[in-house]
Design a protein around this nucleic acid. Sequence first.
DNA 1: ACCTGAACACCGTTCAAGT
DNA 2: ACCTGAACACCGTTCAAGT
Lengths: 236, 236
Amino acid sequence: MTAKSKTSTSEGAPGAVWFRPEKQSRTKPLLTQDKIVSAAVELLDRDGVRQLSMRKLADRLQAHATSLYWHVSTKDDVLDLALDAVFGEVRLPVESGPSWRDDIIAFMAELRRVLLDHPWAAALASTRPLAGPNALARSEFVYAALAAAGFGRADVLAAGAAVSNYVIGSVSAESVWRHQDEAGTRSALAEHLRAREADYPALAGNFPADGGDWQAHFDRGAQYLVAGMAATAGLE
Amino acid sequence: MTAKSKTSTSEGAPGAVWFRPEKQSRTKPLLTQDKIVSAAVELLDRDGVRQLSMRKLADRLQAHATSLYWHVSTKDDVLDLALDAVFGEVRLPVESGPSWRDDIIAFMAELRRVLLDHPWAAALASTRPLAGPNALARSEFVYAALAAAGFGRADVLAAGAAVSNYVIGSVSAESVWRHQDEAGTRSALAEHLRAREADYPALAGNFPADGGDWQAHFDRGAQYLVAGMAATAGLE
DNA sequence: ACCTGAACACCGTTCAAGT
DNA sequence: ACCTGAACACCGTTCAAGT
Protein backbone atom coordinates (compact mmCIF):
# COMPACT_ATOMS: atom_id res chain seq x y z
CA MET A 1 0.00 0.00 0.00
CA THR A 2 2.62 2.49 1.08
CA ALA A 3 4.95 1.26 -1.65
CA LYS A 4 2.23 1.59 -4.24
CA SER A 5 1.37 5.18 -3.35
CA LYS A 6 5.08 6.08 -3.41
CA THR A 7 5.59 4.78 -6.92
CA SER A 8 2.33 6.23 -8.21
CA THR A 9 3.50 9.75 -7.31
CA SER A 10 7.08 8.91 -8.39
CA GLU A 11 8.33 11.82 -6.32
CA GLY A 12 11.97 10.87 -6.04
CA ALA A 13 12.32 9.13 -9.39
CA PRO A 14 15.25 10.13 -11.64
CA GLY A 15 14.24 12.69 -14.27
CA ALA A 16 11.11 13.71 -12.35
CA VAL A 17 12.45 17.22 -11.80
CA TRP A 18 11.75 18.18 -15.38
CA PHE A 19 8.10 17.31 -15.14
CA ARG A 20 7.49 19.02 -11.85
CA PRO A 21 6.44 22.70 -11.80
CA GLU A 22 9.38 24.89 -10.80
CA LYS A 23 9.51 25.27 -7.06
CA GLN A 24 11.02 28.74 -7.77
CA SER A 25 7.67 30.12 -8.83
CA ARG A 26 6.34 29.35 -5.38
CA THR A 27 9.28 30.86 -3.59
CA LYS A 28 9.14 34.11 -5.56
CA PRO A 29 6.22 36.17 -4.31
CA LEU A 30 3.47 37.20 -6.71
CA LEU A 31 3.20 40.55 -5.02
CA THR A 32 5.99 42.94 -4.12
CA GLN A 33 5.91 46.42 -2.67
CA ASP A 34 7.23 47.81 -5.95
CA LYS A 35 4.48 46.16 -7.96
CA ILE A 36 1.87 47.43 -5.54
CA VAL A 37 3.22 50.96 -5.72
CA SER A 38 3.38 51.11 -9.52
CA ALA A 39 -0.12 49.71 -9.80
CA ALA A 40 -1.25 52.34 -7.31
CA VAL A 41 0.32 55.14 -9.34
CA GLU A 42 -1.42 53.86 -12.48
CA LEU A 43 -4.79 53.71 -10.78
CA LEU A 44 -4.30 57.11 -9.17
CA ASP A 45 -3.38 58.62 -12.53
CA ARG A 46 -6.44 57.10 -14.12
CA ASP A 47 -9.12 57.54 -11.47
CA GLY A 48 -7.83 59.91 -8.82
CA VAL A 49 -7.19 59.53 -5.15
CA ARG A 50 -10.80 59.21 -4.08
CA GLN A 51 -11.38 56.19 -6.26
CA LEU A 52 -8.40 54.23 -5.01
CA SER A 53 -9.30 51.36 -2.73
CA MET A 54 -7.31 48.43 -1.48
CA ARG A 55 -9.77 46.11 -3.18
CA LYS A 56 -9.45 47.74 -6.60
CA LEU A 57 -5.70 47.88 -6.21
CA ALA A 58 -5.60 44.17 -5.38
CA ASP A 59 -7.93 43.37 -8.27
CA ARG A 60 -5.57 44.98 -10.72
CA LEU A 61 -2.77 42.82 -9.34
CA GLN A 62 -4.96 39.72 -9.50
CA ALA A 63 -4.77 39.26 -5.78
CA HIS A 64 -7.05 39.73 -2.81
CA ALA A 65 -7.18 42.96 -0.87
CA THR A 66 -6.05 41.27 2.30
CA SER A 67 -2.91 39.99 0.60
CA LEU A 68 -1.62 43.53 0.20
CA TYR A 69 -1.21 43.77 3.93
CA TRP A 70 1.67 41.38 3.90
CA HIS A 71 3.72 43.89 1.88
CA VAL A 72 2.36 47.14 3.19
CA SER A 73 0.87 47.92 6.54
CA THR A 74 -1.85 50.43 5.68
CA LYS A 75 -3.40 52.23 2.73
CA ASP A 76 -1.56 55.33 3.92
CA ASP A 77 1.68 53.50 3.31
CA VAL A 78 0.61 52.92 -0.27
CA LEU A 79 -0.16 56.61 -0.71
CA ASP A 80 3.13 57.69 0.86
CA LEU A 81 5.08 55.30 -1.35
CA ALA A 82 3.17 56.30 -4.50
CA LEU A 83 3.80 59.96 -3.79
CA ASP A 84 7.49 59.44 -3.24
CA ALA A 85 7.66 57.43 -6.45
CA VAL A 86 6.32 60.51 -8.23
CA PHE A 87 8.98 62.70 -6.63
CA GLY A 88 11.46 60.20 -8.02
CA GLU A 89 10.50 61.32 -11.52
CA VAL A 90 11.79 64.83 -10.87
CA ARG A 91 15.06 65.07 -12.79
CA LEU A 92 17.81 66.92 -10.98
CA PRO A 93 20.92 68.22 -12.76
CA VAL A 94 24.08 66.29 -11.98
CA GLU A 95 25.71 69.47 -10.82
CA SER A 96 24.42 72.96 -10.24
CA GLY A 97 24.93 75.52 -12.99
CA PRO A 98 26.57 78.95 -12.90
CA SER A 99 23.37 80.78 -11.94
CA TRP A 100 21.52 79.76 -8.79
CA ARG A 101 18.50 81.63 -10.10
CA ASP A 102 18.36 79.53 -13.23
CA ASP A 103 18.81 76.38 -11.16
CA ILE A 104 15.92 77.24 -8.88
CA ILE A 105 13.66 78.32 -11.72
CA ALA A 106 14.45 75.13 -13.63
CA PHE A 107 13.78 73.03 -10.55
CA MET A 108 10.40 74.65 -10.05
CA ALA A 109 9.43 74.08 -13.68
CA GLU A 110 10.53 70.45 -13.51
CA LEU A 111 8.68 69.80 -10.26
CA ARG A 112 5.57 71.37 -11.77
CA ARG A 113 5.87 69.21 -14.88
CA VAL A 114 6.04 66.00 -12.86
CA LEU A 115 3.23 66.96 -10.50
CA LEU A 116 0.97 67.88 -13.39
CA ASP A 117 1.67 64.44 -14.87
CA HIS A 118 0.03 62.98 -11.76
CA PRO A 119 -2.87 65.30 -11.00
CA TRP A 120 -3.56 63.71 -7.60
CA ALA A 121 -0.02 64.23 -6.36
CA ALA A 122 0.16 67.91 -5.45
CA ALA A 123 -2.99 67.85 -3.35
CA LEU A 124 -1.90 64.64 -1.68
CA ALA A 125 1.46 66.22 -0.89
CA SER A 126 -0.46 68.89 1.03
CA THR A 127 -1.79 66.31 3.47
CA ARG A 128 1.32 64.46 4.68
CA PRO A 129 4.97 64.90 5.64
CA LEU A 130 7.21 64.64 2.58
CA ALA A 131 9.84 62.45 4.14
CA GLY A 132 10.43 59.75 1.53
CA PRO A 133 13.91 59.35 0.08
CA ASN A 134 13.04 60.96 -3.25
CA ALA A 135 11.31 63.92 -1.64
CA LEU A 136 14.27 64.41 0.67
CA ALA A 137 16.75 64.24 -2.20
CA ARG A 138 14.84 66.96 -4.02
CA SER A 139 14.80 69.14 -0.87
CA GLU A 140 18.49 68.50 -0.44
CA PHE A 141 19.10 69.82 -3.95
CA VAL A 142 17.26 73.07 -3.25
CA TYR A 143 18.88 73.65 0.11
CA ALA A 144 22.32 72.90 -1.28
CA ALA A 145 21.82 75.25 -4.23
CA LEU A 146 20.70 78.06 -1.95
CA ALA A 147 23.49 77.51 0.55
CA ALA A 148 26.07 77.39 -2.26
CA ALA A 149 24.68 80.64 -3.63
CA GLY A 150 25.58 82.32 -0.37
CA PHE A 151 22.23 82.52 1.41
CA GLY A 152 22.35 82.59 5.19
CA ARG A 153 20.69 79.91 7.24
CA ALA A 154 17.42 81.79 7.78
CA ASP A 155 17.12 82.50 4.06
CA VAL A 156 17.96 78.93 3.11
CA LEU A 157 15.15 77.66 5.32
CA ALA A 158 12.60 80.26 4.30
CA ALA A 159 13.44 80.18 0.61
CA GLY A 160 13.63 76.39 0.45
CA ALA A 161 10.19 76.12 1.99
CA ALA A 162 8.78 78.92 -0.15
CA VAL A 163 9.94 77.26 -3.36
CA SER A 164 8.25 73.93 -2.55
CA ASN A 165 5.14 75.47 -1.12
CA TYR A 166 4.66 77.79 -4.07
CA VAL A 167 4.99 74.94 -6.56
CA ILE A 168 2.78 72.53 -4.64
CA GLY A 169 0.15 75.18 -4.00
CA SER A 170 0.14 76.32 -7.61
CA VAL A 171 -0.01 72.85 -9.11
CA SER A 172 -2.79 71.83 -6.72
CA ALA A 173 -4.89 74.72 -7.94
CA GLU A 174 -4.05 74.04 -11.56
CA SER A 175 -4.79 70.33 -11.26
CA VAL A 176 -8.16 71.02 -9.70
CA TRP A 177 -9.23 73.27 -12.52
CA ARG A 178 -7.69 71.23 -15.29
CA HIS A 179 -8.87 67.80 -14.26
CA GLN A 180 -12.01 68.29 -12.26
CA ASP A 181 -14.37 68.92 -15.15
CA GLU A 182 -12.20 71.26 -17.18
CA ALA A 183 -14.75 73.29 -19.07
CA GLY A 184 -17.75 72.78 -16.83
CA THR A 185 -17.00 74.50 -13.55
CA ARG A 186 -14.83 77.12 -15.21
CA SER A 187 -17.57 78.35 -17.52
CA ALA A 188 -20.08 78.11 -14.68
CA LEU A 189 -17.82 80.36 -12.63
CA ALA A 190 -17.36 82.75 -15.55
CA GLU A 191 -21.12 83.01 -15.91
CA HIS A 192 -21.52 83.43 -12.17
CA LEU A 193 -19.01 86.27 -12.08
CA ARG A 194 -20.56 88.01 -15.06
CA ALA A 195 -23.94 87.89 -13.34
CA ARG A 196 -22.42 89.41 -10.19
CA GLU A 197 -20.09 91.91 -11.76
CA ALA A 198 -21.16 94.50 -9.18
CA ASP A 199 -19.92 92.32 -6.32
CA TYR A 200 -16.69 91.24 -7.98
CA PRO A 201 -15.61 93.97 -10.39
CA ALA A 202 -11.88 93.22 -10.33
CA LEU A 203 -12.46 89.49 -10.55
CA ALA A 204 -15.01 89.73 -13.34
CA GLY A 205 -12.85 92.18 -15.24
CA ASN A 206 -9.74 90.02 -15.15
CA PHE A 207 -11.15 86.51 -15.31
CA PRO A 208 -9.67 84.97 -18.44
CA ALA A 209 -12.35 83.88 -20.88
CA ASP A 210 -10.18 81.23 -22.51
CA GLY A 211 -9.08 79.50 -19.34
CA GLY A 212 -5.87 81.43 -18.91
CA ASP A 213 -2.27 80.54 -19.50
CA TRP A 214 -1.37 78.46 -16.45
CA GLN A 215 2.23 78.07 -17.46
CA ALA A 216 2.76 81.80 -18.00
CA HIS A 217 1.24 82.65 -14.62
CA PHE A 218 3.27 79.99 -12.90
CA ASP A 219 6.51 81.18 -14.48
CA ARG A 220 5.81 84.78 -13.63
CA GLY A 221 5.12 83.87 -10.01
CA ALA A 222 8.35 81.88 -9.91
CA GLN A 223 10.17 84.96 -11.16
CA TYR A 224 8.65 87.09 -8.41
CA LEU A 225 9.88 84.62 -5.85
CA VAL A 226 13.49 84.32 -7.02
CA ALA A 227 13.74 88.04 -7.74
CA GLY A 228 12.57 88.71 -4.18
CA MET A 229 14.98 86.17 -2.77
CA ALA A 230 17.85 87.73 -4.65
CA ALA A 231 16.95 91.25 -3.59
CA THR A 232 16.29 90.42 0.06
CA ALA A 233 19.49 88.46 0.48
CA GLY A 234 21.48 90.88 -1.67
CA LEU A 235 22.58 88.18 -4.10
CA GLU A 236 22.64 88.19 -7.84
CA MET B 1 -69.57 59.85 19.30
CA THR B 2 -68.11 62.34 16.91
CA ALA B 3 -69.23 65.16 19.21
CA LYS B 4 -67.72 63.42 22.20
CA SER B 5 -64.34 62.88 20.59
CA LYS B 6 -64.33 66.50 19.51
CA THR B 7 -64.92 67.79 23.02
CA SER B 8 -62.52 65.29 24.59
CA THR B 9 -59.67 66.68 22.53
CA SER B 10 -61.16 70.21 22.87
CA GLU B 11 -59.25 71.16 19.76
CA GLY B 12 -61.18 74.28 18.87
CA ALA B 13 -62.15 75.40 22.38
CA PRO B 14 -61.36 78.98 23.38
CA GLY B 15 -58.14 79.25 25.34
CA ALA B 16 -56.86 75.89 24.05
CA VAL B 17 -54.02 77.54 22.14
CA TRP B 18 -52.06 78.12 25.33
CA PHE B 19 -52.05 74.50 26.31
CA ARG B 20 -51.15 73.16 22.93
CA PRO B 21 -47.49 72.75 21.98
CA GLU B 22 -46.50 75.51 19.58
CA LYS B 23 -47.20 74.46 16.05
CA GLN B 24 -44.21 76.64 15.12
CA SER B 25 -41.77 74.05 16.39
CA ARG B 26 -43.09 71.63 13.81
CA THR B 27 -43.07 74.07 10.98
CA LYS B 28 -39.55 75.25 11.74
CA PRO B 29 -37.10 72.58 10.64
CA LEU B 30 -34.80 70.98 13.19
CA LEU B 31 -32.02 70.96 10.69
CA THR B 32 -30.84 73.82 8.51
CA GLN B 33 -27.93 74.11 6.16
CA ASP B 34 -26.29 76.61 8.50
CA LYS B 35 -26.54 74.28 11.49
CA ILE B 36 -25.13 71.43 9.45
CA VAL B 37 -22.23 73.54 8.27
CA SER B 38 -21.28 74.85 11.71
CA ALA B 39 -21.47 71.37 13.18
CA ALA B 40 -19.25 70.18 10.34
CA VAL B 41 -16.66 72.88 11.04
CA GLU B 42 -16.63 71.91 14.72
CA LEU B 43 -16.13 68.24 13.94
CA LEU B 44 -13.49 69.00 11.33
CA ASP B 45 -11.62 71.19 13.80
CA ARG B 46 -11.75 68.47 16.41
CA ASP B 47 -11.14 65.31 14.42
CA GLY B 48 -9.91 66.26 10.98
CA VAL B 49 -11.28 65.68 7.54
CA ARG B 50 -10.73 61.94 7.44
CA GLN B 51 -12.87 61.36 10.50
CA LEU B 52 -15.86 63.31 9.23
CA SER B 53 -18.76 61.13 8.16
CA MET B 54 -22.35 61.95 7.43
CA ARG B 55 -23.39 59.65 10.26
CA LYS B 56 -21.21 61.32 12.85
CA LEU B 57 -22.31 64.72 11.64
CA ALA B 58 -25.95 63.72 11.93
CA ASP B 59 -25.36 62.22 15.38
CA ARG B 60 -24.02 65.51 16.64
CA LEU B 61 -27.16 67.20 15.39
CA GLN B 62 -29.36 64.52 16.92
CA ALA B 63 -30.67 63.49 13.57
CA HIS B 64 -30.20 60.62 11.17
CA ALA B 65 -27.61 60.64 8.44
CA THR B 66 -30.23 60.37 5.76
CA SER B 67 -31.97 63.50 7.01
CA LEU B 68 -28.99 65.62 6.06
CA TYR B 69 -29.72 64.95 2.42
CA TRP B 70 -32.81 67.09 2.52
CA HIS B 71 -30.63 70.15 3.19
CA VAL B 72 -27.50 69.23 1.32
CA SER B 73 -27.09 67.04 -1.69
CA THR B 74 -23.75 65.35 -1.02
CA LYS B 75 -20.95 65.19 1.52
CA ASP B 76 -18.89 67.25 -0.92
CA ASP B 77 -21.43 70.03 -0.53
CA VAL B 78 -20.84 69.96 3.21
CA LEU B 79 -17.09 70.22 2.70
CA ASP B 80 -17.43 73.05 0.18
CA LEU B 81 -19.73 74.96 2.50
CA ALA B 82 -17.53 74.36 5.55
CA LEU B 83 -14.48 75.57 3.67
CA ASP B 84 -16.20 78.70 2.48
CA ALA B 85 -17.39 79.36 6.03
CA VAL B 86 -13.74 79.35 7.07
CA PHE B 87 -12.86 81.84 4.33
CA GLY B 88 -15.61 83.99 5.82
CA GLU B 89 -13.49 84.40 8.94
CA VAL B 90 -10.78 86.19 6.99
CA ARG B 91 -11.11 89.85 7.97
CA LEU B 92 -10.63 92.28 5.14
CA PRO B 93 -9.95 95.97 5.67
CA VAL B 94 -12.89 98.26 4.81
CA GLU B 95 -10.68 100.13 2.43
CA SER B 96 -7.18 99.57 1.18
CA GLY B 97 -4.32 101.43 2.84
CA PRO B 98 -1.68 103.72 1.38
CA SER B 99 0.76 100.88 0.67
CA TRP B 100 -0.31 97.99 -1.53
CA ARG B 101 2.64 96.00 -0.20
CA ASP B 102 1.40 96.34 3.36
CA ASP B 103 -2.11 95.43 2.27
CA ILE B 104 -0.95 92.25 0.55
CA ILE B 105 1.37 91.26 3.38
CA ALA B 106 -1.41 91.83 5.92
CA PHE B 107 -3.82 89.81 3.83
CA MET B 108 -1.43 86.90 3.64
CA ALA B 109 -0.86 86.94 7.39
CA GLU B 110 -4.59 87.08 8.07
CA LEU B 111 -5.36 84.24 5.67
CA ARG B 112 -2.64 82.18 7.30
CA ARG B 113 -4.04 82.87 10.75
CA VAL B 114 -7.52 81.71 9.80
CA LEU B 115 -6.32 78.63 7.94
CA LEU B 116 -4.14 77.60 10.87
CA ASP B 117 -7.20 77.89 13.11
CA HIS B 118 -8.77 75.12 11.02
CA PRO B 119 -5.92 72.74 10.26
CA TRP B 120 -7.95 70.72 7.75
CA ALA B 121 -8.81 73.76 5.64
CA ALA B 122 -5.65 74.49 3.67
CA ALA B 123 -5.22 70.92 2.45
CA LEU B 124 -8.91 70.72 1.61
CA ALA B 125 -8.62 73.96 -0.36
CA SER B 126 -6.00 72.22 -2.49
CA THR B 127 -8.54 69.69 -3.69
CA ARG B 128 -11.45 71.78 -4.97
CA PRO B 129 -12.35 74.98 -6.81
CA LEU B 130 -12.59 77.91 -4.40
CA ALA B 131 -15.76 79.38 -5.78
CA GLY B 132 -17.84 80.09 -2.69
CA PRO B 133 -18.95 83.67 -2.01
CA ASN B 134 -16.45 84.20 0.79
CA ALA B 135 -13.55 82.81 -1.18
CA LEU B 136 -14.50 84.97 -4.14
CA ALA B 137 -14.76 88.09 -1.97
CA ARG B 138 -11.24 87.48 -0.67
CA SER B 139 -9.93 87.00 -4.23
CA GLU B 140 -11.72 90.14 -5.26
CA PHE B 141 -9.90 92.04 -2.54
CA VAL B 142 -6.48 90.86 -3.72
CA TYR B 143 -7.18 91.50 -7.40
CA ALA B 144 -8.59 94.94 -6.64
CA ALA B 145 -5.61 95.88 -4.49
CA LEU B 146 -3.18 94.82 -7.20
CA ALA B 147 -5.08 96.53 -9.98
CA ALA B 148 -5.33 99.74 -7.93
CA ALA B 149 -1.58 99.59 -7.30
CA GLY B 150 -1.04 99.83 -11.02
CA PHE B 151 -0.25 96.25 -11.98
CA GLY B 152 -1.05 95.28 -15.53
CA ARG B 153 -3.50 92.50 -16.26
CA ALA B 154 -0.90 89.73 -16.60
CA ASP B 155 0.66 90.72 -13.30
CA VAL B 156 -2.69 90.97 -11.53
CA LEU B 157 -3.51 87.42 -12.59
CA ALA B 158 -0.11 85.93 -11.84
CA ALA B 159 0.39 87.80 -8.57
CA GLY B 160 -3.12 87.17 -7.33
CA ALA B 161 -2.70 83.46 -7.92
CA ALA B 162 0.80 83.43 -6.45
CA VAL B 163 -0.37 85.07 -3.24
CA SER B 164 -3.13 82.51 -2.61
CA ASN B 165 -1.08 79.56 -3.71
CA TYR B 166 1.86 80.51 -1.55
CA VAL B 167 -0.32 80.90 1.53
CA ILE B 168 -2.33 77.73 0.96
CA GLY B 169 0.79 75.71 0.17
CA SER B 170 2.64 77.03 3.19
CA VAL B 171 -0.20 76.55 5.64
CA SER B 172 -0.84 73.04 4.35
CA ALA B 173 2.74 72.09 5.10
CA GLU B 174 2.67 73.80 8.48
CA SER B 175 -0.62 72.18 9.46
CA VAL B 176 0.67 68.75 8.56
CA TRP B 177 3.71 69.11 10.76
CA ARG B 178 1.99 70.90 13.60
CA HIS B 179 -1.09 68.74 13.92
CA GLN B 180 -0.14 65.33 12.62
CA ASP B 181 1.79 64.13 15.65
CA GLU B 182 3.79 67.27 16.31
CA ALA B 183 6.86 65.93 18.05
CA GLY B 184 6.79 62.35 16.80
CA THR B 185 7.42 62.49 13.07
CA ARG B 186 9.58 65.59 13.37
CA SER B 187 12.06 64.00 15.76
CA ALA B 188 11.95 60.78 13.75
CA LEU B 189 12.90 62.79 10.67
CA ALA B 190 15.65 64.63 12.57
CA GLU B 191 17.08 61.30 13.66
CA HIS B 192 16.74 59.93 10.15
CA LEU B 193 18.61 62.88 8.67
CA ARG B 194 21.35 62.69 11.27
CA ALA B 195 21.88 59.03 10.45
CA ARG B 196 22.12 59.86 6.73
CA GLU B 197 24.10 63.06 6.93
CA ALA B 198 26.24 61.89 4.02
CA ASP B 199 23.21 61.70 1.73
CA TYR B 200 21.61 64.95 2.86
CA PRO B 201 24.37 67.28 4.05
CA ALA B 202 22.54 70.55 3.40
CA LEU B 203 19.29 69.24 4.81
CA ALA B 204 20.90 67.75 7.91
CA GLY B 205 22.95 70.88 8.47
CA ASN B 206 20.00 73.23 8.32
CA PHE B 207 17.20 71.17 9.83
CA PRO B 208 16.02 73.12 12.87
CA ALA B 209 16.37 71.12 16.07
CA ASP B 210 13.62 72.99 17.88
CA GLY B 211 10.97 72.68 15.18
CA GLY B 212 11.70 75.98 13.49
CA ASP B 213 9.94 79.30 13.52
CA TRP B 214 7.07 78.75 11.11
CA GLN B 215 5.85 82.29 11.34
CA ALA B 216 9.27 83.79 10.62
CA HIS B 217 9.76 81.57 7.58
CA PHE B 218 6.30 82.34 6.30
CA ASP B 219 6.80 86.10 6.69
CA ARG B 220 10.15 86.00 4.98
CA GLY B 221 8.70 84.08 2.06
CA ALA B 222 5.86 86.59 1.82
CA GLN B 223 8.45 89.36 1.67
CA TYR B 224 10.27 87.61 -1.19
CA LEU B 225 7.03 87.45 -3.10
CA VAL B 226 5.92 91.06 -2.74
CA ALA B 227 9.46 92.36 -3.24
CA GLY B 228 9.65 90.38 -6.45
CA MET B 229 6.23 91.61 -7.56
CA ALA B 230 7.24 95.20 -6.93
CA ALA B 231 10.55 94.84 -8.75
CA THR B 232 9.16 92.95 -11.74
CA ALA B 233 6.29 95.36 -12.27
CA GLY B 234 8.41 98.42 -11.47
CA LEU B 235 6.13 99.52 -8.65
CA GLU B 236 6.96 100.66 -5.15
C1' DA C 1 -41.93 70.23 3.95
C1' DC C 2 -39.11 67.69 6.59
C1' DC C 3 -37.52 63.46 8.81
C1' DT C 4 -36.99 58.29 9.46
C1' DG C 5 -35.76 53.32 8.36
C1' DA C 6 -34.42 49.89 5.57
C1' DA C 7 -31.44 48.82 2.16
C1' DC C 8 -27.46 48.74 -1.35
C1' DA C 9 -22.97 48.66 -2.66
C1' DC C 10 -19.18 49.71 -0.96
C1' DC C 11 -14.90 50.69 2.49
C1' DG C 12 -10.00 49.47 5.59
C1' DT C 13 -8.32 46.19 8.39
C1' DT C 14 -7.69 41.85 11.43
C1' DC C 15 -6.93 37.22 11.95
C1' DA C 16 -7.17 32.39 11.61
C1' DA C 17 -6.38 29.23 8.07
C1' DG C 18 -4.24 27.33 4.12
C1' DT C 19 0.12 26.12 1.21
C1' DA D 1 6.97 33.18 3.67
C1' DC D 2 3.19 34.46 1.33
C1' DC D 3 -1.72 34.32 0.18
C1' DT D 4 -6.81 33.43 1.00
C1' DG D 5 -11.52 33.75 3.22
C1' DA D 6 -14.50 35.05 6.53
C1' DA D 7 -15.62 38.59 9.35
C1' DC D 8 -16.08 43.30 11.72
C1' DA D 9 -17.21 47.84 11.97
C1' DC D 10 -17.74 51.09 9.23
C1' DC D 11 -18.89 54.25 4.78
C1' DG D 12 -22.19 57.62 1.16
C1' DT D 13 -26.37 57.60 -0.83
C1' DT D 14 -31.27 56.27 -2.51
C1' DC D 15 -35.87 55.79 -1.80
C1' DA D 16 -40.22 54.55 0.01
C1' DA D 17 -42.60 55.66 4.06
C1' DG D 18 -44.12 58.36 7.80
C1' DT D 19 -45.86 63.01 9.87
